[in-house]
Simulated scan of single mutants.
Amino acid sequence: MDKVYIYPSLGGSFSMNRYFDGLVSGLQANDIPFEVVRPKGSGLKAKYIDYPLLTRKKKRNKGKHIIISERYAYLVPFMHEDSIVVCHDLHTLYPQANTPKIHQRLYRFFLNKMFRAKKVVCVSNHTKNDLLKFVPKFSTHQNVEVVHNGIEQFWVDQARVESGNTALIELFQSKQILLSVGTDAWYKNNQWSLKLMADLPEKFHLLRIGAFNQSNEGLIQDLGINHRITRVQNLSDLDLKYCYQNAKALLFPSISEGFGWPALEATLCGCMVISDGAGAVSEFLNVEEHEVIQLNKALEYLNSGELVYANVEVLIWRNQTMNLLELY
Rank of each mutant, 00 (worst) to 15 (best):
residue 209 I to R: 07
residue 101 K to L: 11
residue 299 L to W: 02
residue 52 P to I: 00
residue 12 G to C: 06
residue 128 K to A: 07
residue 84 I to P: 06
residue 313 E to D: 11
residue 3 K to G: 04
residue 168 L to V: 10
residue 266 A to D: 05
residue 272 M to A: 06
residue 109 F to R: 13
residue 141 H to V: 04
residue 26 G to M: 07
residue 9 S to A: 15
residue 159 A to I: 07
residue 322 M to A: 15
residue 200 L to H: 08
residue 219 L to H: 08
residue 132 L to D: 09
residue 170 E to C: 02
residue 17 N to H: 11
residue 17 N to Y: 04
residue 299 L to M: 08
residue 318 R to P: 01
residue 320 Q to L: 00
residue 77 P to S: 05
residue 300 E to V: 10
residue 44 L to D: 01
residue 49 I to T: 06
residue 117 A to N: 05
residue 168 L to C: 11
residue 305 G to L: 12
residue 42 S to Q: 09
residue 188 K to R: 13
residue 171 L to C: 09
residue 195 K to H: 15
residue 44 L to Q: 07
residue 267 T to M: 01
residue 226 N to G: 12
residue 223 L to D: 03
residue 84 I to L: 09
residue 254 S to P: 12
residue 24 V to G: 01
residue 111 L to Q: 06
residue 233 Q to F: 01
residue 318 R to T: 09
residue 229 I to G: 03
residue 265 E to A: 13
residue 182 G to N: 11
residue 138 F to T: 08
residue 85 V to Y: 03
residue 162 E to D: 08
residue 16 M to C: 12
residue 161 V to P: 03
residue 283 E to D: 12
residue 20 F to Y: 11
residue 256 S to L: 10
residue 81 E to M: 07
residue 232 V to S: 00
residue 223 L to M: 09
residue 177 I to D: 13
residue 137 K to E: 11
residue 112 N to H: 13
residue 174 S to P: 03
residue 202 E to G: 09
residue 54 L to C: 05
residue 289 E to R: 09
residue 53 L to E: 10
residue 111 L to C: 05
residue 277 G to C: 02
residue 183 T to G: 14
residue 285 L to W: 12
residue 285 L to A: 01
residue 197 M to L: 15
residue 31 D to S: 14
residue 271 C to S: 09
residue 162 E to N: 12
residue 245 Q to F: 02
residue 192 W to D: 05
residue 207 L to C: 08
residue 210 G to K: 05
residue 285 L to E: 04
residue 78 F to H: 13
residue 320 Q to P: 00
residue 321 T to K: 04
residue 165 N to L: 06
residue 206 L to N: 11
residue 65 H to M: 03
residue 167 A to T: 04
residue 85 V to I: 03
residue 71 R to M: 05
residue 45 K to F: 14
residue 206 L to G: 15
residue 268 L to D: 12
residue 24 V to E: 08
residue 261 W to C: 02
residue 256 S to M: 07
residue 119 K to S: 13
residue 144 V to C: 01
residue 163 S to P: 07
residue 203 K to S: 05
residue 114 M to R: 03
residue 24 V to A: 01
residue 189 N to D: 10
residue 313 E to T: 13
residue 169 I to H: 05
residue 255 I to F: 04
residue 51 Y to S: 10
residue 304 S to V: 05
residue 60 R to E: 10
residue 190 N to S: 07
residue 60 R to A: 10
residue 252 F to G: 10
residue 9 S to W: 14
residue 156 V to R: 13
residue 315 L to N: 15
residue 120 V to R: 04
residue 274 I to C: 08
residue 234 N to H: 14
residue 144 V to Y: 01
